[in-house]
Design a binder for these strands. Structure first.
Lengths: 100, 100
DNA sequence: ATATTATATGAACAATCATTCATATTTGCA
DNA sequence: TGCAAATATGAATGATTGTTCATATAATAT
């Protein structure tokens, strides 16, 4: 193979992070604007703890970044790659919907 | 949320399929040309059984398609979305490499 | 028919991972 | 200093999943 083993592994890690319903909901939640943890939890109807755990995973994986303001912490999508992965995956899914 | 729950779930399923090192290796293997099961197994150094199992998952998820010729079955990438997901994820990973 | 080659499948096991619950940390304010 | 609000963390658990091994199916050739 032409591609390095450790690059494959990093791709696996990256995609594994994206491949979870809770984390996808969080990302869609942040698509338009930054939000703090509690607002996200309310919006996607999940516990504060769960959202916090998943945000950590998303942040470690470079999917989101955060900004502190007083006692609140605002999260937002990190870059264009994240949006693109969401977009293309969505297209793929919607295309399938068509001929099911 | 604006996006439907079952679309999120399908996105999860799609990304889950992509997020495995063995399956990624298979996809990279098929990037340029179609190949049969045994050739893939040899190329990525995996057992025939494992490759067959993973090809089934890739096929069910619309990542690859297959073509029968005699006793052999040739697999190839299904469409552009697959290539794009690989490409963008690769970019994301390589960008991270830069500032580690 | 039998043997051979290519691929698929089912069961089983180990490992990974999402979620919950309880608790800890941090910040702002009275 | 003490309280409340916002977020993070650790342990435990139940479910999912990648891999292996053994075996089954399918097609071809002798």
């Amino acid at each position: 193979m032409e591609i390095k083993e450790h690059v494959i592994n990093k791709m696996q890690d990256t995609l594994k992070i994206a491949s979870d319903a809770t984390r996808l909901k969080i990302m869609f939640c942040l698509l338009k604007e930054e939000k703090c943890v509690n607002d996200i939890a309310l919006e996607i109807n999940a516990s504060q703890s769960l959202v916090s755990h998943q945000l950590k995973i998303l942040k470690d994986g470079e999917f989101v970044k955060s900004r502190k303001e007083g006692t609140k912490i605002y999260y937002s999508l990190k870059d264009e790659h994240v949006r693109q992965i969401m977009e293309i995956t969505l297209e793929h899914v919607l295309e399938d919907e068509a001929h099911d």
